[in-house]
Design a protein around this nucleic acid. Sequence first.
RNA 1: GCCGAGGUGGCGAAAUUGGUAGACGCACUAGUCUUAGGAACUAGCGUCGAAAGACAUGCGAGUUCGAGUCUCGCCCUCGGCACCA
Length: 878
Amino acid sequence: MDEKYFAKKIEAKWQKFWAESRAFETDVDDAKPKFYQLEMLPYPSGNLHMGHVRNYSVGDAVAWYKRLKGFNVLHPIGWDSFGQPAEDAAVKRGVNPRDWTEANIKAMRGQLERLGLSYDWSRQMAAHRPEYYKWDQWFFLKMFEMGLAYKKKTQVNWCEYDKATLSNEQASGGLCWRCGNPVTKKDLEQWFLKTTAYADQLLDDMATIESGWPSHVIKRQQDWIGRSTGAFVDFKLSGSDEKVRVFTTRIDTIYGANAVVVAAEHPIVANRRDDLSAEVINKIDEIVVEKNKPMDRETEIEKDGIDTGLKAINPFSGEELPVWVGNYVMMEYGTGAVMSVPAHDERDFEFAKKFGLPIRQVISEPHLAHEHHTMQALALEVPYTEQGVLVHSDFWNGKTSADAKTEMADHAEQHGFGEAATTFRLRDWGISRQRFWGAPIPIIYCDECGVVPEKLENLPVRLPENAPITGTGESPLAKVAEFYETKCPNCGGAAHRETDTMDTFVDSSWYFFRYLDPNNDGKPFDTAKAAYWTPVDQYIGGDDHAVMHLIYTRFWSKVMRDMGLVSFDEPVHRLLTQGMVVGETFYDDSTGKKKYYIPSEVVVERDLKGKITAAKGTDGTILKHAIERMSKSKGNGVDPDEMVDIYGADATRLFVLFAAPVDNELVWHEAGIEGAVRFLQRVWRFVYSWKDSLGQQDGEADADLSPAARKLQQKVHQTIKRVEDALDTLQFNTPVAALMELTNSLYESGIKPDAATNADRAAVREGIEALNKMLVPFAPHTAEELYSVLTGNEIGIVANGAMFPEFRQDLAIADEIEIAVQINGKLRSRVFAAPDADSTALEELALADEKVNEFIDGKTVVKIIVVPGRLVNIVVKG
RNA sequence: GCCGAGGUGGCGAAAUUGGUAGACGCACUAGUCUUAGGAACUAGCGUCGAAAGACAUGCGAGUUCGAGUCUCGCCCUCGGCACCA
């Protein structure tokens, strides 16, 4: 190696060395603690993007740090390789999904390797390979056995653009998670996994991981699971034995009910199509049609409904109420029917206003309760949705809402018309997909025996080599007779296979257990290995999976626990969600639609300070300027390969870590990455300027450290502490800053190799070595190269067992520190004192200061506050 | 509408958790060296001011010797949810 920093050369050298020496293949040394560092696995699209780079740079920094801290580190990677893009490629370009996927994996692995990420490649898994999806199928059959997998006909979320079925999580917000287009409904037979069976656990167990997960993810999961406690109440239909069961969280308001409102699909109306008037039937059908239309996020849906003419009896008051159909009642939640209490619910209020239904107040603000008893119920201007005291509620008058809720639910139960109840927003996970590129659902339909699970020993149910992929939303496997024609495992008669495949989120629900034992042919993984490595110590990924992958994987772990495969409740103890990488965009929206300009088509004007004041296209169009998520079409995308090529992997990674706190958005400015290169070069030059002088101990008696060397020593140890604390709390920008400061201090010390004493040389050596080791998590290639330059060994940092530098408090403390002197809280002067100088000494020093005396001259000192080690504040009057 | 996070220089950000606001970096300005420099180095860089100093952490109050940090009330930005009874 020459003395000039040349990223390409050293990066290629060390990547080759790491691969050949299998430097990152996981060893288990019983004397060391374990650390499982996991990052969300990529979909093999063929192109790494900057978001991946950020995710994996952070993960790699943690993995390296833990290695240097003496852990057995497991740091694997794999491929979420089933999914729609492979089918899209097949439709568009006629390629085979398998070939396309394998080629992409190969290409992306190359990209990851060029970044120098320290993965244990020997544990790689890929979801689309039969050795993996065999176990998806195995889990499915186990869940079928346990009653956790079942089939039902249902309205599924359907994305017309992608021609794809979506789970509720994937259709969150009424928009497709993949393409962002509105979601419609479609009737389909679907396989479901019973996530609702774990709703309580999914919610309650969050308490055990709360401290290690970002609060916004916890919050979103809580909202998603959406537990609400209340009661079921049965309203008997007049002139019938039938009952309508409603769910309410506010049974205390039941005397204010003016109607029972049911969903359009509710059996009570669906079963009476012949009896209801044509007008009612028409309205019901209209509501159903409206409901199944793609949702428009912007406009609020207006309340609609109709009186069915049916009557129901309020079991508390005995009052006869009309039964309405309302478009705001959802069949999928609760019982599909509600009691409408307009005085105390916004939606019911709006509904009552629109249709002129009576509004009766039955809950009062506590201090007004007495008046209400003597008053007629008043028409409210706005609904009163708070809790309060019951009025106009017969026997229950005067009770608080809280008391009434429990007592009234008990009352209902005792009299057989209701009970306390809990409902969830969470629905079961629909996993059937009418897709080719996924794990076949291992179920067989037999005319004689019905639904029959495939035998475990027949797994995997393999995907056929070829299937007609059309992208029209029908199952391609249904057109491959060799695939679906089979024999019943039960009776041996002719039968056919399920032709739907599994949602790809099945694959990612347990992939990180397969890393522990990737070649196991008899089990998904060895339980002893799982007991050692899991739960995951640190998981890192984007927060777009807050309610998809991260709920599914928690569910899956709980099922595996109940199967006896693992013994914990939660698979991930610490979660870090990194922010998005965004870029500057320039666009013209004068035509109503945004037209993006690529950077080479944009001319930017800046003011003296460098702020952008105007932007124009080279065609003269005045452009607007914004920060948006990176994408090719917006012209703000950055190709990681290109960055690595120009600046090097280390500089790219270092910059990504340094540029912003890890959970913030990161705005890509290419100029910033040059700063990272400059820093690495500065380190490089300094080490080279010293490399021949560090070992010299030419007999000269050890002198004391010079003041400059002593100062450097302090900085070294302060930096060790700062870097350690930062990495322990998952901060990556501040430790890089600390290393830059340390580098500046090395230069500023002014200690020259030829002029230095042995002691001073040793101080510089300590600084260089500490810097070198602390640089490893951020710029591993450069660090390896410098390490070999300094130590003369070529076996690499891992093999050499190098450890993170050791912090010494006694060396970090300065001999003399600066104490701020304030007068009335304003900084007026500074004095110097020993770090352990006591209050009296500091006070004396401050009062002796010339500048201080100028300020307090002629005034009365009222009080003096001394914070040892920090400041003196003199309070004066007059 | 509800929930969450956040407002600090031209920009990305620090701030030992109530104690010297703006570390570190980018951009910018001036200079040195160089055939040259988009290299390196030196100096400057919150605002106003010649300086002393004054004013500065979204706005307004409060607590305190002392507030970016704590309390209350507003304003704004970004994310999430969408009639969940």
